[in-house]
């Protein structure tokens, strides 16, 4: 049972890392808390669902379309609201209110568009035979989800550390003002980050029917809570720390479900409290230097 729990925890951890990665990237670049993050994941989940229903596409095949749609949505959303938000006296606080409103609006629109019925993509879409690891059988969808998560984390790493736009993104994450002074087009970088953030959320959503259960319009709120927990564990504003946060969360969740299942849903809150008490800046936080 322990072997199953640990391998399952690893696969779920990778997935939760992907779920929260976009949220942390957006926060790192813009210092805005996207409370609608889970709702974009929900939209990505519905996009994958309809791609399967209408065209018979598996969630992996639907990813290409999601990249285009949600990147464009992120760019549009950035230029529509973020520059005004950043110009306000307290953008972080206002971002809470604005994105909370957006979250509620997306949920209401999704109810109108899709109804309340929970929907699923058959778990057998990636094959009927489970995958065996350490003598334990795991659903094939978990493996695919784990592999896609690793690939997307690698993509974000290459984007941030091996591309010109990524280097500019890190500069903005370090100091928006200094980046601006050094000639970086901060708006272009931030818009790209929001585009990538929403794209990652939507791609995580494509696998949510297998990892989080049936999809329905109200699922985003819980997803945002989990994403926030994972982000805080892995350090706010440190996108790759999110992977560590995801692994800690995934392992803890599986251990709780195995040995204390009645309490498993308390986990996000318990972990948040614990990290706040023990290491408030997150596991990967660098020590602050005061000149």
């Amino acid at each position: 049972m322990l072997a199953y729990t640990l391998v399952g925890g690893l696969l779920f951890g990778l997935y939760f890392g992907l779920v929260a990665l976009g949220l942390n990237l957006v926060f790192g670049v813009m210092r805005l808390v996207n409370l609608a993050h889970g709702d974009f994941l929900m939209l990505g989940a519905f996009a994958a669902y309809w791609a399967y229903q209408l065209f018979g596409l598996t969630p992996v095949s639907a990813l290409a379309a999601e990249v285009v749609i949600f990147s464009a949505l992120g760019l549009a959303l950035y230029y529509a609201v973020v520059p005004r938000l950043l110009a306000s006296s307290d953008p972080e606080m206002l971002s809470f209110i604005l994105f909370f409103g957006l979250s509620q609006a997306l949920q209401a629109l999704a109810v109108i568009a899709f109804g309340n019925n929970p929907r699923s993509i058959p778990a057998t879409v990636f094959g009927r035979a489970p995958v065996r690891i350490l003598g334990q059988a795991f659903p094939a969808a978990w493996m695919v989800s784990g592999v896609v998560s690793v690939a997307l984390v690698l993509f974000v790493y290459l984007y941030l550390y091996h591309s010109r736009l990524g280097r500019a993104t890190r500069a903005v994450m370090s100091s928006r003002e200094e980046a601006m002074v050094s000639g970086i087009d901060v708006h272009r970088v931030s818009a790209a980050a929001l585009g990538v953030g929403l794209m990652l959320a939507a791609m995580a959503g494509a696998f949510s029917p297998f990892m989080l259960g049936s999809i329905e319009p109200g699922m985003g709120t819980a997803v945002t809570t989990v994403s926030f927990t994972v982000t805080v564990i892995g350090t706010l504003g440190e996108p790759l720390g999110t992977v560590l946060g995801g692994l800690v969360y995934g392992m803890s969740l599986m251990l709780m479900e195995s040995y204390l299942s009645s309490w498993a849903n308390l986990l996000p809150y318990l972990l948040l409290i614990a990290i706040m008490l023990v290491r408030p800046a997150g596991l990967l936080a660098r020590r602050a230097r005061y000149a």
């Binding site: 199953y4 729990t5 989080l212 259960g213 819980a222 195995s258 299942s261 009645s262």
Partner: peptide, 20 residues
């Protein structure tokens, strides 16, 4: 004999515990 939270949406681990 195990209770789970009402909003539990993933039973994979629990099913393996049941099988055991």
């Amino acid at each position: 004999d195990q209770g789970v939270a009402t909003n539990t949406s993933n039973y994979a681990v629990l099913l393996h515990n049941v099988e055991a």
